[in-house]
Design a protein around this nucleic acid. Structure first.
Length: 520
RNA sequence: CGGGGCGUGGCGCAGCCUGGUUAGCGCGCUUGCUUCGGGAGCAAGAAGUCGGAGGUUCAAAUCCUCUCGCCCCGACCA
């Protein structure tokens, strides 16, 4: 490629809207251009890289036996209504009507489409297993698009779906995708970690995320220094906590705590640590109230709570609801004397004695509260967010927490979609059975951005070779010096001849300008 | 959606508080001359509905109201 003929504008100044380094550098290097929030044009230099990432993905998917195809982005609503996700997906789903008023959406993911294809195509176990994938534009109306191409409303994704006759087959498909992903991200020059993850609204039982380690990451991941345990913190398990034995129960006592609502205020006022206090949070799980107890220094993990409750939606009760349920104002809730509500407690609360709680009465708290004597807990569950000083749930060693960018996610879906859409096959005995599914996604543009996050210096991007837009950069320092120029041209021709991806900066610019652009 | 901030040539900003004639500056762009091994100098030039609508006023980028867009901080996802 000759730079003189390329659509490429680099900038000296950092665009004001760009926060993270990959976004800044992509803009400065003239690879992308914003159209609207979370919507970008991919310019020639950027597309060059994106296609390389795509091709690496394609090669490894094909090697793993998956078949590429292409689904429409425009999905009729019927399929989504049938799977139940037309309602569940919420505002993130971009919906539209055609000229006759028929409902459609722009696909944010394609479980429905692929399952629909398979239920129509597949009758016999003889046609299985299958693994189909596509690299296609997805649409999600994100609450908050940000970080450039990293979280867009329109983005390129590779999504694959596996279809098996039994669990063993599904496990094998999952494993082969897991391995393919490992190869893909290695080839993209990324430093990453595969972690256990919550499967969220996609559903299914088991899932792993592939996390690129970077400070700008939106996720926190935890891993054990001793064993190979690694997990997203939203999924990470926490254990029961051992408290010193032999502490005697003291009589419960009500104390005046004027205007003391937060854990910090109460602790300071009563001169106790947050570990000696139990927070009572009132949640509404699909309108069923739940009282959730966690230690004062802990945070409720809403993903765990949601899974435990089995509800579709979980939200914290507002102050009016709290007043109604507990009889006291927000900030003074406690488990003692609560009626008509299920009380569940985090495992760390189980062995705790003589703790502080709200009294369900304005400006009062209770001291020396004890489970079993003062109130009953209906269920003890792992309900909290893991903290940095928690031990590894597998081996008890120390954990470290890092930030990561989720570039890939693999799920074992089981029969969630095959059941909803009735995708069945006949086994060798002629019996009708549900197909076992898995699904596997990679954010293509996100992987590209993640590569920049990890590989750059103060002057620009340092592409890992496999995804570099060009491999040879020829920079004639002078366009006036005929000797330099013809030598440069000779090298360029030789590179092209040899099949190398070369770029020559044949613009009549000063050397400094060219060097700066080359760095970017 | 809640909270905060910003919309002024392609990009980065000043001007607004305290209304006043031709709306400035830097980068980039065009032309010429001089330069030329790490973002050159001089000169000339093109380019702006001051996000939009309404209002106040003799007069609005500036004050008021509404509206749209964008960015940042919190719950989700590739």
């Amino acid at each position: 490629m000759r730079l003189s003929g390329m659509l490429l504008h680099t900038t000296r100044e950092v665009p004001a809207d760009a926060e993270v380094i990959s976004h800044q550098l992509m803009l400065r290097a003239g690879m992308i251009r914003q159209v609207a929030a979370g919507i970008y044009m991919i310019l020639p230099m950027g597309y060059k890289v994106l296609k390389k990432v795509e091709n690496i993905i394609r090669e490894e998917m094909d090697r793993a036996g998956a078949q590429e195809m292409l689904m429409p982005a425009l999905n009729p609503a019927e399929l989504w209504i049938e799977s139940g996700r037309w309602n569940v997906y919420g505002k993130e789903l971009i919906r539209l009507k055609d000229r006759r008023g028929r409902d459609f959406c722009l696909g944010p993911t394609h479980e429905e489409m692929f399952t629909d294809l398979i239920r129509k195509e597949i009758r016999s176990y003889r046609s299985l297993p299958l693994n189909l994938y596509q690299i296609q534009t997805k649409f999600r109306d994100e609450y908050r698009p940000r970080f450039g191409i990293m979280r867009g409303r329109e983005f390129l994704m590779k999504d694959a779906y596996s279809f098996d006759t039994d669990d063993e087959g599904a496990d094998a498909s999952y494993k082969s995708m897991y391995e393919a992903y490992t190869l893909i991200f290695k080839r993209c020059g990324l430093r990453f970690r595969a972690v256990e993850a919550d499967s969220g609204p996609i559903g299914g039982s088991v899932s792993n995320e592939f996390m690129v380690l970077a400070e700008s990451g939106e996720d926190e991941i935890v891993h054990c220094v001793a064993c190979d345990y690694a997990s997203n913190v939203t999924k990470a398990e926490t254990l029961e906590v051992d408290y010193p034995a032999g502490e005697q129960s003291r009589p419960m006592e009500k104390v005046h705590t004027p205007e003391m609502k937060t854990v910090d205020e109460v602790c300071r006022f009563l001169k106790v640590t947050s570990k000696e206090l139990v927070k009572t949070m009132i949640y509404l799980a699909d309108d069923t109230p739940l009282a959730v107890l966690v230690r004062g220094d802990h945070m409720v993990n809403e993903a765990k709570l949601l899974n435990f409750s089995g509800a579709q939606e979980l939200k914290m009760a507002d102050s009016a609801a709290i007043q109604k349920i507990t009889g006291g104002p927000e900030g003074f809730s406690g488990p003692v004397g609560l009626e008509g509500i299920k009380v569940i407690a985090d495992l760390a609360v189980k062995g705790l004695k003589n703790f502080v709680t709200g009294a369900n009465e304005n400006d009062y708290h209770l001291l020396s509260v004890n489970i079993g004597r003062d109130f009953e807990v209906h269920d003890f569950q792992d309900l909290r967010l893991l903290e940095a000083d928690d031990p590894c749930p597998r081996c008890g060693s120390t954990l470290t927490i890092e930030k990561g960018i989720e570039v890939g996610h693999v799920f074992k879906l089981g029969t969630k979609y095959s059941q909803a859409l009735k995708a069945t096959f006949q086994d060798a005995q002629g019996e009708e059975k549900l197909i076992i599914m898995g699904c596997y996604g990679i954010g293509v543009g996100r992987s590209m951005a993640a590569a920049i996050e990890q590989n750059h210096d103060e002057d620009g991007i340092i592409w890992p070779m496999p995804i570099a837009p060009y491999h040879v950069y020829i920079l004639p320092v002078s366009m006036k010096d005929g000797e330099v120029l013809s030598a440069a041209e000779d090298i360029y021709s030789a590179c092209i001849e040899a099949g190398l991806e070369a770029i020559i900066d044949d613009r009549d610019e000063r050397a400094g300008v060219k060097f700066k652009d080359a760095d970017l």
